[in-house]
């Protein structure tokens, strides 16, 4: 057996899996985007019809705007809230066991099955007197029941996703804060730095790499994930929480426009590439991966 062949042989089980579950589906999606496949599930080449339809779709402006609000809002919440949680549980709570307990609490939304988690949200924000929030506000504030899910649908969607996503940032930022040598904090304290100054001048500048990682990772995941929105509002009321990925799903699997759904998904993939490149540029990724000039 030739020597060059052995590594490929060892890798072949994984290569086969990757080809079957990543490469082939991606290829099929690209092919589908150029067909008018519908409920009959027949492959009929339709050229660029689906892409033309995307740009004449009357709901496109609303869906793009919703996607921006959802991705931007949730990303901001995930990074900022994740950082605050990490800072509180790692730096300000010096007692390690308390910090771990605190972080474990915030992991609960992530380990809960999405359906159960969303049911709790639905029950909490349910309109009418049966909703928990309405019942509590009637008891303590004496106010009339509110239609939370129709008035603040996007905000609730962002919160539901944010509480799950923040735990990811929290874990990454916690380990990054832990990795900062204690000597730096001690030196700062000896020099009379306040806690706020330590956070602003020491911790924050050292968070650039993890912030970039969490932002890019979460951006990609938020662009493509829609399960919490689907379970919580189904994209409604009206089109208030219909984001690009959910719209693609609805078109393909509810309206049975598989070709159009695939075209929408394909556009989203290129959008994700573009936004990732933009983020890396913003964070000056090339400079970050260069070896340190101080040795």
């Amino acid at each position: 057996m030739k020597r060059w062949f052995l590594p490929y042989l060892m890798l072949s089980p994984f290569l086969i899996l990757v080809v079957m579950f990543y490469v082939i589906p991606a290829f099929i999606t690209v092919m589908l985007a150029f067909t008018d496949m519908n409920y009959a599930m027949e492959w009929r080449f339709a050229g660029l019809v689906n892409f033309e339809k995307i740009f004449t779709d009357p709901f496109l402006p609303v869906i793009v705007w919703n996607t921006c609000k959802y991705v931007g809002g949730t990303l901001f919440f995930n990074v900022v809230f994740g950082f605050v949680l990490a800072l509180l549980s790692t730096y300000y709570i010096q007692h390690e066991k308390s910090g771990i307990f605190f972080r474990a609490l915030w992991m609960l939304p992530r380990i809960s099955p999405p359906v159960v988690y969303v049911l709790l949200f639905l029950w909490f924000f349910a309109p009418g007197q049966y909703g928990l929030l309405n019942a509590l506000s009637a008891i303590f504030l004496g106010v009339e029941p509110q239609n939370w899910l129709s008035e603040y649908a996007m905000l609730i969607v962002i919160l539901a996703n944010g509480f799950v996503g923040a735990s990811f940032g929290m874990i990454i930022f916690s380990s990054a804060i832990r990795a900062i040598p204690q000597d730096i904090f001690r030196a700062a304290k000896v020099d009379g730095a306040t806690e706020f100054a330590i956070t602003k001048e020491i911790i924050l500048p050292l968070m650039k790499w993890p912030v970039m990682f969490v932002s890019v990772w979460q951006l990609l995941s938020l662009l493509t994930s829609f399960e919490y929105i689907l379970l919580l509002t189904g994209g409604g009321p009206f089109l208030d929480t219909e984001v690009w990925s959910l719209y693609s799903y609805h078109r393909a699997f509810v309206g049975f426009e598989f070709g159009y759904g695939a075209a929408l998904a394909l556009v989203m993939v290129f959008t994700a590439f573009f936004l990732t490149a933009l983020m890396l540029k913003l964070f000056d990724f090339n400079r970050m991966i260069k070896s340190s000039r101080i040795d």
Partner: peptide, 9 residues
């Protein structure tokens, strides 16, 4: 009819 009827269960 409640305005939010289409968001109810």
């Amino acid at each position: 009819t409640p305005e939010a009827i289409t968001t109810m269960e």
